[in-house]
Design a protein around this nucleic acid. Sequence first.
DNA 1: TTGTATGCGTTATCAT
DNA 2: ATGATAACGCATACAA
Lengths: 345, 345
Amino acid sequence: MAVNQRVNIFDVANQAGVAPSTVSRVLNGSSKVSDSTRARVQLAIELLDFRPSRIASGLSKGRVANVAIIAPYLTRPSVVARVDGALEVFDKRGYQTVLYSAGTPAQASEYVERLMDRHESLGVLVISLPLTEPQLLGFRKSGVELSLVDSYASGVVNVHIDNVRGGWLAADHLIKVGHRRIGIVGDIDNNFHKFRSSQERIYGFTKRLLEEGISLDSSLIRIGKHSPIEGRRMAEELLVRKAPPTALFATSDTHAIGILAALEGLGLSAPDDCAVVGFDDLEVARLLDLSTVRQPLVTSGTVGAERLCDLLEGKSPEPKGLKLDLELVARASTMGKVGVVLGSK
Amino acid sequence: MAVNQRVNIFDVANQAGVAPSTVSRVLNGSSKVSDSTRARVQLAIELLDFRPSRIASGLSKGRVANVAIIAPYLTRPSVVARVDGALEVFDKRGYQTVLYSAGTPAQASEYVERLMDRHESLGVLVISLPLTEPQLLGFRKSGVELSLVDSYASGVVNVHIDNVRGGWLAADHLIKVGHRRIGIVGDIDNNFHKFRSSQERIYGFTKRLLEEGISLDSSLIRIGKHSPIEGRRMAEELLVRKAPPTALFATSDTHAIGILAALEGLGLSAPDDCAVVGFDDLEVARLLDLSTVRQPLVTSGTVGAERLCDLLEGKSPEPKGLKLDLELVARASTMGKVGVVLGSK
DNA sequence: TTGTATGCGTTATCAT
DNA sequence: ATGATAACGCATACAA
């Protein structure tokens, strides 16, 4: 005689004196169950501490309430903020979420391949990762739903920001505060080279400069790995030049705090010696009084997750592409003592 | 006629001209399959792009290769570092991992309850969360394996650090650099009040002080929420006193960077006006040249995950409790220009 | 409203 | 070495 057998609906049915199907009905909240039997069944469930097997249920229904998140570099604050937002939503809406953190594009593709299977998860939330056409096609024919966060593909549900406008806002702010000789510190991602955000921000930045008739000195641009230390190194290079910039734009707060460290290391300070604008508005930005272009990170995760859930429940979110707002947060690193939240869109 | 039917082992069996059970054998790497039929089956699998249903397999086997991670406050750098380490291991060892991020103890308990069910996951990695006796018992009788990271329970596999010693190391360092009037900034966690790490570190710190015959001025202790901003606020309170401390110990780097910000805001600097030691050695610590007690965050995650996997494969990790090493990293915030890694244990 | 029977896609226990 | 078949635990179409 087997020990510790799992309690199943049959046991519950026996205990309650009904048929297994009836138990199943109360489990799934069917309306066609009399209140009295429902009560009896629920009692039996309590009594036996019965927990339905989600995998048996899944096999029977042909679907498990599972979703997956696939993201690069989980440790980056911006990524984890989005993931955290999404996790909360998925949990609230009854989905179990499997997380994949990809360190390389190869690994990302591997995960993507794996997820193109109805029995893995019903839908996947893709964060900050470009999908190839074949991959998109694969999802379409597999029936696994897709929701993109900080990424774009036509015809696919997605939330993103206007990186070009973000860069534009940063430049606009620096120009208004009087700067004309401005340097840029951006990322290059050697692994996921399709990470275009940084480049788009730089594009928008220079666009605003040109509007003002300011020509960009390309020798004032530095591109490096996404880390504060690298940011510091690049900033130092720029700051020790004979004609250093009066302001620096970093395409991420991560680089920006490196810039602030560089200034401090050189005995300089923002904004007097060099103004600094970052991008993201991470928590540290507020601490360091760093002016920055704020993007709604957590919100992007929650919205992306909500829309995936909607998709899974048959509603089709419209419009497919959602553009989240940006706003420039002016703090001491450009304004000195007084910090204010300037205009937005 | 149904469209888009899932291809299953029967289809593969047909295609290959064998029985389903044979397909199952090659799927599970059974040795009792002739090379020729194995080849034929594999060909059929390729041809049909067959992917075995892990939930059907799970139902049949009575176990799915799933594990869960449950952690509080995913967004904290220390937590995400551990999670990231664990994710990599689980993936490498063939497990799918479901992530639960708890914002409150109630939610944590809810997750814990849910996970005490064989069909949810085979094992769970609990990070920085205390488990109650009833909960531990629940896991024991459910057969779901448990591995604790940064947490402890007797008889349960766990990895942790000696927080008391960590505090001791910090004090030891400050004393050796000549400080005697030292303040402390620690966390109180209003949600998970059983978070004792901070208190243990403070205990070890004062212990070292007493050894040296230095009496602790309790008015130099501040306890607050775990955020850099709070750290700054508390540091400011201490620094503007008539007799300010010459050094501050923060029980986390998160608070420590707040202290550095406070110093800067007051026009002071470390270590001349006030030396600072943190705890964790997050990436920012290096950037800010912050002296700190380094604990192996990522390693704690990988080790905890490895041990859970071992458990699931029938090996029992010994010893159950693993204490990870700490080391004091001396940087500019206590040493001025020259930073060195001092001794450890 | 409730019960009966069958299927979901695999694995495992028998045979052969 | 390979094939037939009964579980695994639940949901649902159909009967009653």
